[in-house]
Computed example of a mutant assay.
Amino acid sequence: MTSHAEHTAGRGTGRLRSLLAPLGAAALTGALFTYVGAVDPNAPGHYPTCPFLFITGLYCPGCGTLRTVHALAHGDVIAALGLNPLAVATIPFLLFWWGRWVLRAWQGRPRRTTLAHPAYIWAFLALVIVYWIVRNLPFGRFLAP
């Protein structure tokens, strides 16, 4: 038989182990954010050109995201919004989902098999496609990086 102290210690170890994945994701994201903040994507030669832009001459939904992250790392939200407003608008949702992941892991609840309800995922996909098209049309040039 295990004592109450051993049982409690085992539960705490299990909680810490379940937090490894979300905390690892946060550490990796923080490292990438720090790297892009330090290595300026506006300077030539540091990052490859977007393959879609290189091949077609059109902007993809992600074009400008590295420069957006660099601007956010330097506290310039206005510049970030001018480079890729969709990327900036997505950040609060990513933080929400990460926070939900941490909370579920801390509570010992099983991971969800889906990130969100399928209707939300399809709606976001439709938004990305519309954004992709509009930023390449003459009236949508304000969305271009």
Rank of each mutant, 00 (worst) to 15 (best):
M1V: 15
M1N: 13
T2N: 12
T2M: 10
H4T: 15
H4V: 15
H4W: 14
H7G: 14
G12T: 13
G12A: 12
G14N: 05
R15G: 07
L16I: 11
R17P: 01
R17S: 11
L20E: 04
P22Q: 04
P22R: 03
L23R: 09
G24C: 06
A26G: 12
A31Q: 12
L32I: 03
F33Q: 10
T34Y: 15
Y35C: 00
Y35H: 15
Y35M: 12
V36C: 00
A38D: 14
V39M: 11
D40L: 02
D40Q: 07
N42L: 08
A43Q: 14
P44H: 10
H46N: 10
H46G: 06
Y47T: 01
T49C: 02
T49L: 09
C50K: 01
P51S: 08
L53D: 09
L53K: 07
F54K: 07
Y59L: 07
Y59M: 04
Y59N: 07
C60A: 03
G62R: 00
T65C: 01
R67G: 06
T68P: 07
T68H: 06
H70R: 13
L72K: 11
G75Q: 06
I78A: 15
I78Q: 13
A80Q: 15
L81H: 12
L81Y: 09
L81P: 06
N84G: 01
N84P: 02
V88M: 00
V88I: 07
I91L: 11
P92F: 01
P92G: 04
F93D: 02
F96K: 06
W98D: 05
W101K: 01
W101I: 00
L103G: 05
W106T: 05
G108Q: 08
P110M: 10
R111E: 15
T113L: 13
T114A: 10
T114K: 04
L115V: 13
A116K: 05
P118C: 02
A119Y: 02
A119G: 05
A119H: 01
A119Q: 03
Y120W: 12
I121T: 14
W122R: 13
A123F: 00
L125I: 14
L125E: 04
A126V: 08
L127N: 03
V130T: 03
Y131R: 01
Y131Q: 04
W132Y: 08
V134N: 02
R135V: 07
F139R: 06
F139Q: 10
R141G: 14
R141T: 15
R141W: 09
R141S: 11
A144K: 00
